[in-house]
Lab assay of single mutants.
Amino acid sequence: MSIQHFRVALIPFFAAFCLPVFAHPETLVKVKDAEDQLGARVGYIELDLNSGKILESFRPEERFPMMSTFKVLLCGAVLSRVDAGQEQLGRRIHYSQNDLVEYSPVTEKHLTDGMTVRELCSAAITMSDNTAANLLLTTIGGPKELTAFLHNMGDHVTRLDRWEPELNEAIPNDERDTTMPAAMATTLRKLLTGELLTLASRQQLIDWMEADKVAGPLLRSALPAGWFIADKSGAGERGSRGIIAALGPDGKPSRIVVIYTTGSQATMDERNRQIAEIGASLIKHW
């Protein structure tokens, strides 16, 4: 067993022997301040990774656009098919120029040779490549099948209805392509620590998230040296922004954090800054 596999296998073990965790309302004060600064709703939840206990939450059962955070769930569904012998990570998928959609920095470079399922998941999570996500959605049967996968996990809230990039439209009061912070946090925890996926697939999923290259201005910008984070960000229309993450000190994750916002007129930089400040408060009061 590799060191990384050992780390993920012992996530519940280490967490069980940690000192009790206590909620700190100071972080919620910052979440509410972010709402004021952005002029928009902000949803927040913080779960203990081992027990699933909610440590703090704000608007945990209000719907927010998922945006690209759905790509972690998508690759979880792909990995479940791999575990069941219905898919192979090494299978190569070929596609054409007509398949390319807006923001496809990886797939646009491989029109000639195609990409493997493993490479597509890596591109979808680490670079948020939209064509990679659409190609992977095709392998599982489309958005409705991802929703069905989530329902089978016990998540009857999260739903995907459309493809990239239309799913980022974020129309107010439109339930399409949305989740709730509580539902997303619980589902992410199941994917990373539950028995739904094999140990190898859980490790692969967290490795992809740990290698995320496009979430630097968010929670990662607030992390002290030595902290662990595996995350996936999302951005959408109407001032929408979000991030889902597993993080913790001492090089291992111990909490799940989900943050979503929508309806702001603020710039992307300002949305990023507010999420980073929430992260800084979380870490300060850990």
Rank of each mutant, 00 (worst) to 15 (best):
F6Y: 10
L10T: 13
L10V: 12
L10M: 12
I11A: 11
F13I: 10
F14T: 10
F14M: 11
A23K: 05
A23V: 04
H24C: 09
H24N: 15
E26L: 15
K30S: 10
D33F: 15
A34Q: 09
Q37C: 11
Q37S: 14
G39D: 12
V42M: 10
G43I: 00
Y44M: 09
I45R: 03
L47Q: 07
L47W: 03
G52V: 04
E56N: 11
F58G: 04
P60V: 12
E61P: 01
E61M: 14
F64G: 00
M66C: 07
L79G: 02
S80E: 12
Q86Y: 12
I93L: 12
N98Y: 14
V101R: 08
Y103K: 02
Y103Q: 04
Y103C: 05
V106T: 07
T107L: 08
T107W: 01
K109R: 14
K109E: 14
H110S: 08
T112V: 13
M115R: 05
A124T: 12
I125S: 03
M127Q: 12
S128H: 00
N130G: 05
T131K: 02
T131A: 11
N134Y: 03
L137H: 03
I140F: 06
I140W: 03
P143N: 04
E145D: 11
A148W: 09
L150V: 13
H151I: 10
G154D: 09
D155E: 05
T158E: 00
T158L: 01
D161F: 03
W163Y: 12
E164V: 00
N168L: 05
N168H: 05
E169L: 13
E169I: 10
A170M: 07
P172N: 09
N173L: 14
N173A: 14
R176Y: 07
D177V: 01
A183W: 08
L197H: 05
L197S: 05
A200G: 14
A200M: 11
S201K: 07
L205T: 03
I206L: 13
D207H: 09
D207C: 10
W208P: 00
M209E: 00
E210D: 09
G216D: 08
L218P: 03
L218E: 02
R220M: 03
R220E: 03
L223Q: 05
L223A: 10
F228L: 06
G234T: 00
G239F: 02
R241E: 03
I244V: 13
I244S: 03
A246Q: 05
R255Y: 02
V257I: 10
I259M: 08
I259A: 03
T261I: 12
T262V: 05
T262E: 09
G263E: 06
S264D: 04
Q265Y: 12
A266N: 12
M268P: 07
D269A: 14
N272A: 05
E277S: 10
A280R: 14
A280L: 11
A280D: 14
S281Q: 14
S281D: 08
I283R: 06
K284Q: 13
